[in-house]
């Protein structure tokens, strides 16, 4: 190891390690709390001192906190909303990227403005709406995963801007050539653009997924029945009802929630690195 190595590479590692410590310490705390049998605020520290699975066991055995059920609900909501959001956004992004039509610019701007309005502020109106919908079609009312998903699907066009940006970087010649070969607009979209846009679809999918899995404000209003709750509102209820005692159970639930997301992120890492910006720079 030469001095030069230290100056040019070692320092980079040093910086990286500082960032790693910063990133990891809070996560370690959660891990430590999850495995600490006492599970209180006072007894928990960053470095795990004791090891017990009692909190994980209680997650799967307490009927007042049906964790597996919450997990299932969350998976359903996340999957449904993510798929709908990415698909609708991709469809619209295709129109905005490839077609020239009246109101295109206005439409894009309007989309942006509406997206910036926090849906939460319209919560009273939403509540009334879902109540009415539930009276008419009980499967879509309050305390239903379907009704709650519908509300979140109001943000179906949230990813249009990002996907459109990516579509813009895919050379038009590709689809023009296909059209010459007799392909319909649908074929161009599904068979040519979508496969090419896989990185951005993965990224926007992740963004949507992360947004949905952490949503608890609306969930706490729309999902009050224990069995209809999502992880977010369920876990929030656990920690909110008794912050000092339920830290352990909460942390165990948090770990179980975060684990699949972390794995998904690791799997899709290469897309995130490339997906958001590669096209824009190439332009």
């Amino acid at each position: 190891m030469t001095v030069r190595w230290w100056r040019e590479v070692g320092l980079r590692h040093a910086g990286g390690l500082v960032a790693v410590v910063f990133a990891v310490v809070p996560v370690l705390y959660v891990v430590s709390a999850a495995f600490n049998p006492l599970g209180t605020v006072v007894s928990t520290d960053v470095i795990p001192t004791q090891f017990s699975l009692v909190h994980f066991r209680s997650l799967f055995s307490d009927p007042a906190r049906p964790f597996p059920r919450w997990l299932l609900n969350t998976v359903i909501v996340c999957a449904a909303v993510t798929v709908v959001q990415v698909l609708c956004s991709a469809l619209a992004a295709y129109a905005f990227s490839r077609f020239r039509f009246k109101g295109r610019r206005g439409g894009l701007l309007t989309l942006l403005l509406i997206q910036m309005f926090p849906q939460f502020l319209a919560v009273i109106a939403l509540f009334t709406m879902i109540t009415e919908l539930g009276d008419a079609v009980p499967a879509l009312g309050l305390n239903t995963i379907a009704g709650y998903s519908l509300v979140l699907m109001g943000g179906a066009l949230a990813q249009v801007w990002l996907i459109k940006g990516y579509f813009d970087t895919i050379p038009r010649q590709l689809d023009e050539a296909a059209v010459v070969d007799g392909a319909s607009h649908a074929t161009v979209f599904f068979k040519i653009l979508l496969p090419l846009a896989r990185p951005i679809l993965a990224v926007t999918g992740l963004l949507a997924f992360v947004g949905v899995i952490g949503e608890f404000l609306l969930a706490s209003i729309f999902l009050t029945d224990t069995r209809s709750k999502t992880l977010a509102v369920g876990l929030y209820g656990i920690i909110e009802s008794d912050r000092s005692n339920n830290l352990g159970v909460f942390a165990a639930g948090a770990l179980m929630t975060a684990l699949p997301v972390v794995l998904l992120f690791q799997y899709l890492q290469r897309y995130i690195v490339g997906g958001l910006t590669s096209g824009a720079v190439k332009d």
Partner: peptide
């Protein structure tokens, strides 16, 4: 969040 735990600890 910690008042009771201070005593019980």
């Amino acid at each position: 969040s910690n008042a009771i735990a201070q005593f019980t600890a």
